[in-house]
Design a protein around this nucleic acid. Sequence first.
DNA 1: CAAGATCGAGACTACTACTATCCATAAATG
DNA 2: CATTTATGGATAGTAGTAGTCTCGATCTTG
Lengths: 221, 221
Amino acid sequence: MTEMRMAELSRRSGLAVPTIKYYLREGLLQPGRRTGVNQAVYDVPHLERLRLIRALAKVAGLPLHTIREVVRAVGDGSTVLDTLAITQDALVGAVEPEPSDPGAEALLARVIEARGWRAHPASPAYAAALRAVAELRAEDLTMLVDHLEDYARAADEVGRIDVEAVGGADDLDEMIRGVVLGSVLRRPLLDALVLLAQQHHAGALGRDPGEGADGHPRGRR
Amino acid sequence: MTEMRMAELSRRSGLAVPTIKYYLREGLLQPGRRTGVNQAVYDVPHLERLRLIRALAKVAGLPLHTIREVVRAVGDGSTVLDTLAITQDALVGAVEPEPSDPGAEALLARVIEARGWRAHPASPAYAAALRAVAELRAEDLTMLVDHLEDYARAADEVGRIDVEAVGGADDLDEMIRGVVLGSVLRRPLLDALVLLAQQHHAGALGRDPGEGADGHPRGRR
DNA sequence: CAAGATCGAGACTACTACTATCCATAAATG
DNA sequence: CATTTATGGATAGTAGTAGTCTCGATCTTG
C-alpha cells in the first residue's frame, strides 16, 4: 500500500501543501482518488509527477502553463512523434516572426539541404532556428554565422544521440517519457557542457595574467 | 551627425518611449549626452545597445538584471576571460546545489577527465552540468546518461567553434562582444538546430500514420 | 510666444508563481 | 465520544518582473 494523504505527499515531495493544492487547481497534478466529500488519497505516480514538474520548472525553466501542456502529452495516449511535436512546440514557445531576413533564410535552407535534414519550414523549430540566425546576422556576428554548418553538424550528432537513446526504450510509455524529458532535461546538460568546453578552449586565448591558469570564472553574486 | 533625441531613438529602435526611459532608470541603457537640465541626445551606440538588450531578452530569454550584468561587462574594460566568466555566471544564474549525488559527480568527473577539459569544480558551469546530470539520474533517464561522453564530444566541438570563431576577431573589443553575444545568442541557435535534427532522426521511429512523412510538428496554439 | 517634446519621478498595471486564510467536514487521538 | 488536527475547496493576498501611464517643470521649434 503506497497510498498517502496530502501531508505525506507534501513531506515526500518537499513541496508546501499550498503549492501542491495550487498545482492541483492549475491542472498540473492529477487529482487524488476521492474517498469522501473532502478527502482524497495520492499515490506514487503523484509523487513522480511532482518531481517531474519541479524538474521542468527548475532545471529547464519552463513556465507552468507550458509544463501543463507537456505533462498532459506524457499522460494521454499520444504517439511518439506527436509527443515530440508538442514538446518542441512548448520548448520554443510562440516565436514571433521578426521582420524576415531573406539572407538568413537562404543560409539556413542551405545548411538544412547540406545535412539532408527533412525539416518543414512551418515547424516551430525551423522558425526558432531562422530567428536565431537572423539575430546573429543583425548583430553582425558573421564569424559565428560562418560556422553554421559546423554547428549543424554538432546539432545533428546531438539529435541523433537523443533519438537513438530514447528509441531503445522498452515500451511506448517509456519512449514518450524519454522524448519529453530527453528534450527538456538534456538541453541544460548540453548548455553546461558547452560552457565547460568554452572554458577549456578559451584557455588558449589566455592573455590574462589576472586569471588563474585553469580559466574558470571566479565566484560572483 | 548621427545624434538623435528620444522620439527618434524610440522610432528607430521600435521601443516605446516609456520602455526606453525604464531601461535608462534600470541602468541597462547608458544615459544620453546632456544638453540641458531636462534634455539629452542619443547616438548610434544607444541604438545598438537597445538592439542588444532586446536580443538578450527576447532571443536568449535573459531577465533584465542579468542583461544589466552582461552589458556592463561588454562596456567596461574587462579582459576576454573575465567577460566570458561574467557571461557564463549570468547565463547559468545562481544554481542551488540540490542534494548532492555522488554518482553524478563521478560520472561528470570521468567525462571531463576523458575529454581532457580543464574545468574547475567551483565554476558555475560545472555546478550546472552536475545538476543536469543529477536530474537525469533522478528521473531514471539512464539511456541519456549513458551517452554523456557523446554529448560531451558534441559540446566540445561547439565550444571549440565558438572560441575559434571569436578568437579570430580583429580587436579586443570585437572579441569581447563576440564572447558575450556568441555565448548568449548561439545557444538558441544550437537548441533550434538540435530540434531540427531530432525531427530528422525521429523520422526513423515513425510508426505514426497520422503524421506527415516529413515528421514535422503540426501548428498548435 | 504658443504648441509640442523631453526629463524625471512616482503611481499604476499585467502576469507568474506561489502563500495565507477561511470554513465545513473528516480523521485521529486521549 | 469529545476534542484536536488534517483535508479539500474557495478566495484573497504577496513578491518579483517588466513594463506603462500620468504629471509637472522645463526646453525646443515653427
